[in-house]
Amino acid sequence: MDIAIDIRAVTKRFGEVTAPVTAVDNVSLSIGRGEFFSLLGPSGCGKTTLLRMLAGLEHPTSGSILLDGREMAGVPPHLRPVNLVFQHYALFPHLNVAKNVAFGLRYQGVARRDENARVAEALELVRLGGLENRRPDQLSGGQKQRVALARALVLKPKVLLLDEPLGALDQKLRKEMQVELKALQKRLGITFVFVTHDQDEALTMSDRIAVMNAGRVEQADAAATVFERPRTLFVAGFLGAANLIDGFIVRPEKLSLRLESAPEGGAFLSLPVTVEDRVYQGINTIWTVRLDDGKRLTICQQNTEPFDVHAGAAGEKRHVWWDKRHAVYLDEKGLDAG
């Protein structure tokens, strides 16, 4: 893998000596050129702080960051080969769209007369051609987001950092933008580092995902791997749901409910359960069932059969089945042992 960004044992501590907060705890990651790499985690896990350190807006307390092999310690943001798309866009309110997008061009030595062409090109990329003279307060959220994107892309950075850029958009627009961003990234071949707390978003767009929790990276793998083979309880629970059964994890959609128990020595295992609740969700049905030892499991089954109102009422006995290959084993510390 041709490494674009090398993060080595980076730690960031904030606050007074007496009450320090460790936002990023000894994180090491390598991000390849042209990758769509996501930092995924709940609020406060350190992903945004890490991103800001890549941009140069924060300095690591210890450790180092290399961009394209160059050590970035002491390099201020305006001299780094990366650009950041801010969560709340940070558009300059006193400039129109064209001037916003053109803002950084003069620092690349682009002549004034060539600026218009570059701006038009960037706006075409994000499908906002024709809005050059609008001011930020005349734009919708989605439009502002695209202007922020264009403003960064016009500088043709090697690495684009995005800080939860889709957070303020409504569901439908968000999904559209996810697809657009992914296509854009593929087309331009730029390395994207994308911060989000939305696991669907991360799975949709990313080549690789680093799942963060309380300042640490719990797992960094290809998207499918992080989902299918989570290494810790946290990762399993953060991407999709996870049922913890006796030392291993099975996802709700990998479980099925049958009347009979599974045959011995087959590909499947089963356990007897009592049905507690059933929620119809159109495409799926969510079952809550209880094992003999009192532990609850969640089952998510696609409604392939015509819906039967009377099947599986509360209190009925069933068996929950799963394919042995879908069981992810953890040791006592909650880490993947196998």
């Binding site: 140069g56 943001p77 305006h78 801010f86 940070a90 950084g104 003069r106 960064a152």
Partner: peptide
């Protein structure tokens, strides 16, 4: 303040 950060990120020095 994020406007100042954005400006810096886009290539402007302190004076810019």
């Amino acid at each position: 303040r994020t406007l100042l950060e954005a400006s810096s990120d886009l290539g402007a020095s302190g004076r810019g």
